[in-house]
Amino acid sequence: MEILREILNKFNIVHAPFILDQVNVPESDIALIEGCVLDGNQAQVEYLKSIRERTKKVIALGTCAAFGGIASLSPGKQADPVDRFIEIDGFVPGCPPPPGLLNDSAIRLMEGKRIVLSDRNLCSSCELRAENMNEFTRPIDAITPGTTNPVAKQATCFLKDGILCMGPVTREGCEARCIKKGVPCEGCMGPPSQEYTSNVVNFFSMLPLSAELRDYTGMVFRFGRPRIRRETKQ
């Protein structure tokens, strides 16, 4: 919020449906876009294109705009990120985007620089990471602590404790807020590289997942789904 004030001092907000009456998209320097496009909704795609045409820098803000987001979990519906329709100049992932990263990115944008994201995964800044953390053998059968481990504070890597944590396949940058609070990462920062679902599939293929979790798609399409549906010929 402080940063919004800063932005108001330096920039004119020319288009913001939430706070402005303006309906048409005017020319601007920076556009921040939130949310995904559902089922290729034509009106939304047109809207995006009109923004792209009139804007120097388009930034996808939040995991929905960057990867498709939570709506990807919807069966039979396609949630597409903004960059499947228009070219973008950067994105700030996170559901919600971490305040630190948001501030940094806003400052960089105001200075005319590119947004910088870490290329690493969350493990690199996780306080629960241990030297031999890859050597876990216990079956992973829980998606939240508390069901099987009524402990006060998480002391070891969740994966070692049999609790699914998406940290290894999630981009660093959220300061591990959830993990610090004893809640495993659910992957809202998205993959550090490549596409969302295949990234998770690679990970799951290597985990000793319980049968129950193995066929649970709630994590595989958590914040993204590949657009692979085939156009069937008439």
Binding site: A43, A71, P75, T144, T147, Y216, G218
Partner: peptide, 24 residues
Amino acid sequence: DVFRGFEGILRGKHYLDAPRIASR
């Protein structure tokens, strides 16, 4: 005019997972 369909999203999800999804 845009449907997001959280009923469909929540159906079939693990019950301990539901609050995290519902929050979205």
